[in-house]
Design a protein around this nucleic acid. Structure first.
Lengths: 135, 135
DNA sequence: TAAATTGTAACATTGTAAGCTACAAAATGG
DNA sequence: CCATTTTGTAGCTTACAATGTTACAATTTA
């Protein structure tokens, strides 16, 4: 559930602009372990969404304005997890349906992703903070 | 991963129209256990998508034409699983971000679901068989 | 130098999905 | 009526992936 945790972390950072938050503080908000949070932050940092710093007063902060970070950016940071999941066991027989299942799942997932993309791209962190948290 | 398995079962039935397939046969195609398949079929039957019969020559078959069964029908049969997942642990503190996370996840999921619905409703089992399996 | 913090590795725990076993009930055919 | 096949479902076990835990070197601050 990295995407959900990542979104939570990003909202916490957006809600406290300019503040560097250590993983322990974020972990308390998320209800998770500091190491889990640091692992999630590693993905966010690799995607250039957050900036981290060690030492006293260190922690994570947004790499740019919450107005310029979208849910799509966060989704991508975790490898664009699939909206629709298949399963991965390859069947023994040469059954034609089995062979085609990955393609079918892929087709559906791509179709949904294509429709979802504008929604995710059009939703900024700032909008979520304004419309869902400060309200 | 019930939806994926359910779709696989439905495609196998659509690929063999008029044939009653026992759970053991379907399980072999899916690469799963017959009991798991029967559990999935129970959901499909509850949604009125398949028809089952006990005894020799028994098994499952489509309850109506594959042209009149959509991916949306199957998705609904499994309770419309979320496209975007949050996590469920309630945080200890009174952190405002934490409190609002369920609402945020819900908002995103509903937005994606609304865009995805036409895709799922517009894709029939028959179309998948024709375009992805017999091709 | 002491303290705080990240990043990461290695291992343990846990929650959930799937598998397995078992059997009553239903259907079929002799 | 009996033997067989199959579903539906319960109860238990297993396996796996996600998360937690512990630990520590490296970095930063003061």
């Amino acid at each position: 559930m990295s995407f959900g945790t990542g979104l939570h972390v990003m909202l916490a950072l957006a809600y406290n602009p300019g503040v560097r938050m250590p993983s322990a503080t974020l972990a308390e908000s998320v209800g998770a372990n500091p190491v889990t949070v640091r692992r999630v932050i590693a993905d966010l940092a690799a995607a250039g969404l957050v900036d981290t710093q060690t030492g006293p007063g260190g922690g994570a902060t947004l790499a740019r304005s919450a107005r310029r970070i979208t849910v799509a950016n966060i989704h991508e940071a975790f490898g664009e997890p699939a909206f629709i999941e298949g399963h991965h066991k390859d069947p023994v027989g040469k059954c034609e349906v089995s062979v085609c299942m990955p393609r079918v799942i892929d087709r559906l997932n791509h179709a949904v992703a294509k429709k979802a993309a504008p929604v995710l791209r059009g939703t900024t962190l700032q909008a979520l903070v304004d419309e869902e948290i400060r309200s």
